[in-house]
Amino acid sequence: MEDIKHWLEAYPVIVSITKYLVWIILIFLIIAWVRRLLKKRLPDNALRYKSQKGIEIIGYFLVVLITITYFTGNIKDFGLAIGLLTAGITITLQELILSIAGSFYIFLVRVYKPGDRIEINGIKGDVIDIDSIYTTMMEIGQWVSSDNYSGRIVKLSNAFVFKGPVYNYSQDFPFVWDEFNLPIRYGSDIELAKEIVISVAQEKLSDYVTESISKWKDVVDKYYIEDAQVNPSLAITMTDNWVQFNLRYIVDYKKRRYTKHLLNEEIGKRIEQTNGKVTLASATFEIVNIPTVNIKEDKTTES
């Protein structure tokens, strides 16, 4: 024991570092244990996720606090140590610092949350996790058409919330406006065509319209924005080749592709049932005149 005591007195720095490492390991073990406990005890996924992230943030704070206490020797020097530490590592770790700041900003301001569909830094997808450095997304689009998953999981630095716009498809108002064009041939019964398109839109979109009205009222109360038309609307344009119907409607942000399929399918069926009164148009080309080309053969004689 005496030898151990003399050795400890001879190497106080090693002893201090060992104590520091023991405290850090103990904190991480406690965090891991509490996270597992919350995962078992909390039935709600959203509450379990937020609680685990909160414990993780508290753990990081305690690690920073213990580190500063050990290396400054006094908790009163906390502010000074933070200033010196920040000045020393800002240049080399600025991206990491910005990412950590971004994670706090995301949680406090609620820029987005797990389950939201967002587009950031040119990448669109559903948020599946947010940690202290990265936002993890299930990618949408790229080589896959419409709003379908590509199958790639993307990790994006939280620092990007400070570097550009964040498009949120689901926050406050989980609906988007969509539209498509329908070419109707000249000579068709335009009034009948209008009746078909409007009736199909009202039948297929009634649930979305009802839900979106109450949601949009909340948006109007929260933001400085005017009231909007959420009922399906039809605009008609006369072109050189056909009468163009433009149907604009509101839809759940996750069901754009499927809803457009239902509308096109039902409208197509009802147009066929008109027995030629309404006909879809297609691009046609008319050749007015074919120029005559005269070819003269130059014959030369050999002497």
Rank of each mutant, 00 (worst) to 15 (best):
F245H: 09
F245W: 04
F245C: 06
L247W: 04
L247P: 05
L247I: 14
L247A: 07
L247Q: 03
L247Y: 05
R248V: 04
R248P: 05
R248I: 07
R248M: 04
R248L: 07
Y249S: 00
Y249G: 03
Y249M: 07
Y249V: 03
Y249F: 14
Y249W: 05
I250R: 07
I250C: 10
V251E: 02
V251D: 06
D252C: 00
D252W: 00
Y253E: 13
Y253I: 12
Y253T: 12
K254H: 10
K254Y: 04
K254F: 08
K255D: 11
K255H: 05
R256Y: 06
R256F: 06
R256A: 12
R257L: 12
R257V: 15
R257P: 02
R257W: 14
Y258L: 12
Y258K: 11
Y258I: 10
Y258D: 15
Y258F: 09
T259Q: 06
T259A: 11
K260I: 14
K260G: 11
K260N: 13
K260H: 08
K260Y: 01
H261W: 15
H261G: 02
H261Q: 11
H261P: 00
L262K: 12
N264Y: 03
N264M: 10
N264V: 09
E265G: 05
E265Y: 10
E265D: 13
E265A: 11
E265F: 02
E266T: 11
G268Q: 10
K269G: 02
K269W: 02
R270F: 06
R270L: 15
I271Y: 00
E272K: 13
E272S: 09
E272H: 03
E272D: 10
E272F: 07
Q273F: 03
Q273Y: 06
Q273I: 07
T274A: 08
T274V: 06
N275G: 09
N275K: 14
G276P: 02
G276R: 09
K277T: 07
K277M: 09
V278D: 01
V278K: 01
V278T: 10
V278C: 08
T279M: 13
L280K: 12
L280M: 13
L280R: 12
L280Q: 10
A281G: 05
S282Q: 14
S282H: 13
S282N: 14
A283R: 14
A283N: 11
A283D: 09
T284K: 09
T284I: 12
T284A: 01
T284C: 00
F285G: 07
F285Q: 10
F285V: 15
E286L: 11
E286M: 08
I287W: 03
I287C: 02
I287F: 11
V288T: 13
V288D: 12
N289W: 07
I290D: 01
P291C: 05
P291E: 12
T292E: 13
T292N: 12
V293I: 13
V293N: 00
V293F: 01
V293G: 03
V293Q: 03
N294M: 01
N294T: 11
N294S: 04
N294L: 10
K296Y: 03
K296D: 03
K296R: 02
E297P: 00
E297C: 00
D298V: 15
D298K: 13
D298E: 14
K299A: 09
